[in-house]
Design a protein around this nucleic acid. Structure first.
Lengths: 362, 362
DNA sequence: TTGTAAGCGTTATCAC
DNA sequence: GTGATAACGCTTACAA
C-alpha cells in the first residue's frame, strides 16, 4: 500500500492512531454502526449510541477529516481568496472580518482556507480551488465594478457568496451580503449639510471597488439634493491607508479655499486626517468638521467602553458582524445551492464631537 | 458507494469531472504511469511525460487534493491558530504576516488553514487539528511567557514552528523565528538617552506576551546601563491598540512631572500617542520625543516611497518578511521533522524627525 | 436496529 | 519504462 504516515498518531500516548476500524473492532460493532452513532443517525439505538460515544471519547477519537471528505464528497472547508494590493497589502479590515466568520464556522465544524493572491491572479485561484476539490464554497472578497468572478464561479459550479456587490448587482442573480454604503454616506454628508457646511470634501477608498463607488454616490447624492457644487478638487481617492488620509487632508487644508468639512471613507483614513489637522494646528470641530465611515475595527476600539476622548462622528457597521453573517450564508448556500441569499445591512449614525457648524456659516 | 458529489465538475463545460481514471483511459495508459508522469518521477520516459502533461492541460485536470492527501498521508495544508483577545480582537499585525506567508506557500503548493479561537481554547484546537489530520504542521502564534502549547505539540507529534519565543526558550528545544525585540528596544531607548533624555516612558503591549516582555527588558536594560531610574508610573502596558496608545500618552503628558520622551511598543500605539500629543497642543519633537517599534504594517505605509511628512523614528522589522521566512521554515520542518530551526531577525533603526534633545537638557 | 461491501480518487508496492 | 493492485479511512446503498 505505502502510506508513509507523516502524521503523528494523534494520541497523547504512544501507540497507533485510533481510527474507525480499530474503534469498531474494540466495540464489537461494525464500522457502519459506529459511524452512524457518531454522526447522529436516528436509526441507532440510544444504548448503542451512548456506548459508542463513550468509547470514542475515551479513545480520543476524531474521524479523519480527509477520509470523510473523500467519502462524503464535501470538505467542510470554505475558501477565502484575499486580494492583495500593491506591496502585498492585505486590507486590514479583513482580519476583523475573519474574526467574525471564524466563530460562526467553528460552531458548525467548518474550517477556513486562505489564499492571498495578487489582484490579477484571482481567477486562476478559483479555478484551482474548484478542480482540486479543496473547498465546498468560496467567499468573493473585494468585488470591483467589473467583476468577472461571478460568471466564472457560476460556470464552475462552485457555491459562493459575495461580500459586497458588483457593478451590475441589479441585473444578475447571485448571493451577497452588503452594507448600504450609499445610504451611509448620504446620511453622513447630509449631517454636515444640515450643520451649514457646503464646502465639503471626500477622502475615499479606491473607486474601482464597488463599495467605494457606492460611498461616493452617497456623498454626491446628498450634495446634489442640497443643490451644492461637487468640486473635483475636493475629491480624493486611493487605498484606505492612514498615510493617504494624511496626505489628502494636508492637501485639502492648504488649499486657497479649503473645505470646512471632510467626509472619510474609512476610519484609517480619518485617523490620517486627524494627524494632518493636528500637525497644522487645526482644531476639531471648530476649524474643521470630520465624519467617517467606520467598520468598527477592533484594533481601533478602546478595550473597555471607556472611549476616553471626544472622538469622531461616524456612520458605523461592524465588519465582524458581517463576517459572521456571511459565514452563515455560506453554510446555508452549501446545503441549498439553489437558494438566492441577498442581504443588506444598515449602518448606525453616531454623533460625536468632531462635527460643528462652520465658522463662515452663511 | 453513495457519493452525492456536491462538487461541481470543475470543468467549465458541462460534463463529468476529469479524474485520473478517465484521463489515463483516454491516454491508453495506466493510472500509475499518468500519476508518475505528472508528479515528476524520473522513470517515466520523456515522450510519455510530455504526452501526459499535454493531455492533462487540455483536459484541465488537477488531482483531487483530498484524494491525494488521503493516499499520501499529507495534506499540504498548514494550520494557523489565531488567538483572539477580548471582543474577538485579532491582532491586525496578523494580516500582514499572512500576506508574507501566503506567497511562500503558494509557490510551493501549500495552503493555509485558519482557526481563530478565544485565548483559552487554543489547546483543544491543536488537539483536534492533529487528530483530524487536517494539517501537516502548525504555526504557534502569540507565544506567552508560560506556554503549554510547546509540550502539547511535541506530545502530539505535530510539526510546528513558533512565531516568537516562549518564556523558557533557552531551556527547551523547539523551532522558532523571532525578532530581537530586546535589542530593538534597547537601541531605541539608548537613542533617546544619547539625545539627553532621562525621563523616558514606555507604552508597551501586553507583557504576558513574550515579545512585549522582551521589549520591556530592552527598555529597562538601556535605562539601567545609563544608571537612570525606572519609574513605574512611566510604564504602561495593554493591548496594542490605537486608543490605548492615546489614553496612556494622555496620562503621561498630564503628569506633574511628565516624561520628555516616550518609547512605544507598536506603531498603532504610537499613532494614538501622536493624536494625544496633537490634541494637547504638544509639538514633536520639540516638546516631546517619540520612538516606536515598527512592524512595517502595509496599511500604515504610504503607497509610494513618498512618505510626505516628517514621521516617526522607528526600530523596524517587517512582519511580512517574517511571515515568508516562517512559511519556509514550516515547509522545511515538514520535510525534515527532526531538524531544529531557530532564527532571530535583527531590526533596523531608522532615524526620523520625531526625536530631539529635551528642552530641559541638563 | 445492525452489518456487508462498494466506492471516493489518489499514491505506492511489487511484479513484469 | 509500464501496469495491476492494494491500501488510505471514511460514508452509504443495500441486505438482513
Amino acid at each position: 500500500m505505502g502510506n508513509l504516515n507523516r502524521w503523528g498518531d494523534g494520541t497523547e500516548v504512544s501507540g497507533n492512531a485510533v481510527n474507525l476500524k480499530s474503534l469498531s473492532r474494540q466495540l464489537g460493532l461494525s464500522q457502519t454502526t459506529v459511524s452512524r452513532a457518531l454522526n447522529g443517525f436516528p436509526e441507532v439505538s440510544e444504548r448503542t449510541r451512548r456506548r459508542v460515544q463513550k468509547a470514542a471519547q475515551d479513545a480520543n477519537y476524531r474521524p479523519s477529516a480527509i477520509a470523510s471528505s473523500l467519502a462524503a464528497g464535501r470538505t467542510r472547508v470554505i475558501g477565502h481568496v484575499i486580494p492583495m494590493a500593491q506591496h502585498r497589502m492585505i486590507n486590514p479590515h479583513f482580519s476583523d472580518f475573519l474574526a467574525g466568520a471564524s466563530e460562526a464556522y467553528a460552531s458548525a465544524g467548518y474550517d477556513m482556507l486562505l489564499r492571498a493572491v495578487p489582484l490579477d491572479e484571482e481567477e486562476d485561484v478559483y479555478r484551482d480551488l474548484a478542480r482540486q476539490h479543496r473547498v465546498d464554497a468560496v467567499v468573493v472578497h473585494g468585488p470591483k465594478l467589473e467583476e468577472p468572478r461571478i460568471d466564472l464561479l457560476q460556470k464552475l459550479g462552485l457555491p459562493f457568496v459575495v461580500h459586497g456587490r458588483c457593478g451590475d448587482a441589479e441585473h444578475k442573480s447571485y448571493s451577497f451580503l452588503d452594507v448600504d454604503n450609499q445610504g451611509a454616506m448620504e446620511v453622513a454628508t447630509r449631517h454636515l449639510i444640515e450643520l451649514g457646511h457646503r464646502k465639503i470634501a471626500l477622502v475615499n477608498g479606491l473607486e474601482t471597488m464597488r463599495f467605494a463607488a457606492d460611498r461616493r454616490s452617497g456623498f454626491t447624492a446628498a450634495m446634489e439634493k442640497a443643490g451644492y457644487d461637487i468640486r473635483t478638487d475636493y475629491m480624493h481617492s486611493a487605498d484606505m491607508t492612514e498615510p493617504f488620509g494624511h496626505s489628502a487632508t494636508r492637501e485639502l487644508i492648504t488649499m486657497d479655499e479649503p473645505p470646512t468639512a471632510v467626509v472619510y471613507g474609512s476610519m484609517l483614513m480619518a485617523m490620517g486626517g486627524m494627524r494632518a489637522a493636528a500637525n497644522a494646528g487645526i482644531k476639531l470641530p471648530d476649524d474643521l468638521s470630520m465624519v467617517t465611515y467606520d467598520d468598527a475595527l477592533s484594533f481601533l476600539e478602546a478595550e473597555g467602553a471607556e472611549r476616553d476622548d471626544p472622538f469622531l462622528t461616524v456612520v458605523r457597521s461592524s465588519i465582524q458582524e458581517a463576517g459572521g453573517k456571511l459565514a452563515h450564508m455560506l453554510m446555508e448556500k452549501i446545503e441549498h445551492p439553489d437558494r438566492l441569499l441577498q442581504q443588506v445591512m444598515q449602518p448606525d449614525f453616531i454623533n460625536a464631537a468632531s462635527t460643528a457648524s462652520p465658522r463662515d456659516n452663511a
